[in-house]
Design a protein around this nucleic acid. Structure first.
Lengths: 209, 209
DNA sequence: GTCTATATCCAGATAGAC
DNA sequence: GTCTATCTGGATATAGAC
């Protein structure tokens, strides 16, 4: 009943970082629910997620989910924010190459990683980068997470000398377009992913011209 | 009651090209229904189309729609095929430039036209180029229409000397990516559309290298 | 915290009278 | 060809017992 190693959380608040035994258990159940949501999203598309199914997947009845999340939109919100944090992590590894890397190598790596990230979880791709879920859009808080993530990407590019907005816009169109084509038209192959280097060469040549 | 200028259609068949008075009236009502479907799709997203709403929009009760279409999927199918025929028409005008045009000009024009086409009708864009409608995919017949349309586009590009599959794949990714970014992030502006020429220059320079 | 039962609302599709 | 009435099945969400 007492805090084990409390830092800030008050027992019983809605935070996910509580250290109280109860809140730890609660956080774990929430994580299980979100895991199950990704799993179901991979089966029926993220837009097809139903709370009944989700509850069954974690072995409870649908109304019990409301103990852990305010509503369905809150579940999407948490998944959305978590997805961008995973994108940050995936792109963070590229930082090692930034220092003395050829821009072509860095951009090629970034495109490659981005497409791989999208392929790694189709429902995550749908939730983060398409408007696949009707009647839902990220809450301001969740949206802020995505903005920060994209800002960091722009920051990394500016360190390569790519700073003109037109260039950034071209690159985002190219990269997201390649990912979209890959998932839509060759989900099990690498028809667009293997063009990452060619795309990077094309783009850098344009920036330098 | 008698055929007016019959060519082939038998009165009462499912064809849309009948010349019988009855079948002409039927074709017109079908067209009205499809018009209304595009209109509603612009309001709530093409995925949110409901047969009840659609019926109300054309002044009938929902079950009456089944006189004109087998089911909801058949409505989507006709809209899908019609959308690609409209794309053909939009791109057909570019043929005039093909003969002696600079490839950069032709590609820039094609990108520009494609983005404009997508912006011209968001629900059409959603239906043709995204997987926005859950539990629906085009029938083989409708799909064949889209394949023919894309084949024609590839044919036009090969006349410009762009024939390597890798180049076609890069161009489709770039073009669809620009359209997607335009609609998602600047629906009322031209932030990506105005980059059509820059994108074309970038692409052609790459092809020539 | 979990359950059963239910409220409320919506969907696509069919039966059968007129 | 159009209608009313209905079937069937789904959804999110809440009330209240335990």
């Amino acid at each position: 009943m007492d805090p084990v190693a409390g830092t800030a959380g008050t027992a019983g608040t809605a935070g996910t970082a509580g250290t109280d035994i109860r809140s730890r258990r609660r956080a774990q159940t929430r994580a299980e629910i979100l895991d199950a949501a990704w799993r179901l999203g991979a089966q029926d598309g993220i837009a097809g997620l139903s709370l009944r199914e989700l509850a069954r997947e974690v072995g409870m009845q649908a109304p019990s989910l409301y103990t852990y999340f305010d509503n369905k939109a809150a579940i999407y919100d948490e998944m959305f924010a978590a997805g961008f944090q995973e994108l940050d992590a995936a792109l963070h590894d590229l930082d090692d190459l930034d220092v003395d890397g050829d821009p072509v190598e860095v951009i090629a790596g970034a495109i490659e990683v981005f497409i791989a990230f999208c392929r790694d979880s189709v429902p995550r791709y749908q939730l983060l980068f398409t408007r696949a879920v009707p009647d839902w859009e990220p809450s301001p808080e969740a949206y802020a997470v995505s903005v920060r993530s994209l800002d960091r990407m722009a920051q990394q590019l500016s360190e390569l000398g790519i700073e003109r907005p037109e260039h950034l816009d071209l690159l985002t169109a190219l990269t997201t377009g390649m990912a979209a084509q890959q998932l839509a038209n060759d989900p099990d192959g690498d028809r667009w992913q293997r063009l990452s280097r060619a795309a990077a060469e094309m783009f850098i040549a344009h920036v330098r011209s």
